[in-house]
């Protein structure tokens, strides 16, 4: 199945590992993930590394998960508004639903996502965790 393919994930390492998006050379709009055509119509972009800090717009705690996440379940996922502008979907690490609030400040942290059985590849990527200032 596609989710076990290391190649499909490998292709996205720059985004997944380093938050590399792009920025329109015409109107300076920042995109993550990268876009090929800006809303302003421009097709010229420059790579832009996002800072990895932002705030939680909304979140959930997944209790019934897809198969490959079963060992990690439950886990929190949220939509994060990054300080640089774009909004992204990300897991919220080291947290359960009771300790999160809409508006909490978060920062990126490199974590393991899934491992395909005992013999398959381990998928890594960036998650977010509550920034120190948000922890009571």
């Amino acid at each position: 199945m596609h989710r076990q393919s290391p190649i499909l994930r490998w292709r996205r390492y720059p985004e997944r590992y380093r938050l590399e998006g792009n920025k329109c050379l015409e109107c300076s709009q920042i995109y993550f993930p990268k876009k090929e055509l800006c809303e302003c119509g421009c097709k010229s972009f420059v790579n832009y590394k996002l800072k990895g800090e932002g705030k939680i717009l909304t979140f959930t705690e997944i209790k019934s998960s897809p198969e490959e996440f079963s060992e990690m379940t439950p886990y929190c996922v949220g939509i994060i508004e990054l300080e640089d502008g774009p909004k992204i979907t990300a897991q919220i690490a080291d947290a359960d639903v009771t300790c999160l609030k809409v508006g909490d400040k978060v920062e990126s942290t490199f974590r393991k996502f899934t491992a395909v059985g005992d013999s398959g590849v381990i998928h890594y990527g960036l998650k977010f965790k509550k920034a120190k200032s948000s922890i009571n």
Binding site: M72, Q91, A93, T109, F110, R111, K112, I122, Y124
Partner: peptide
């Protein structure tokens, strides 16, 4: 370590 941490994730941070 949390379930999603290993020697690689620790090294990265």
């Amino acid at each position: 370590p949390n379930k999603d941490e290993d020697a690689i994730t620790i090294s990265v941070e």
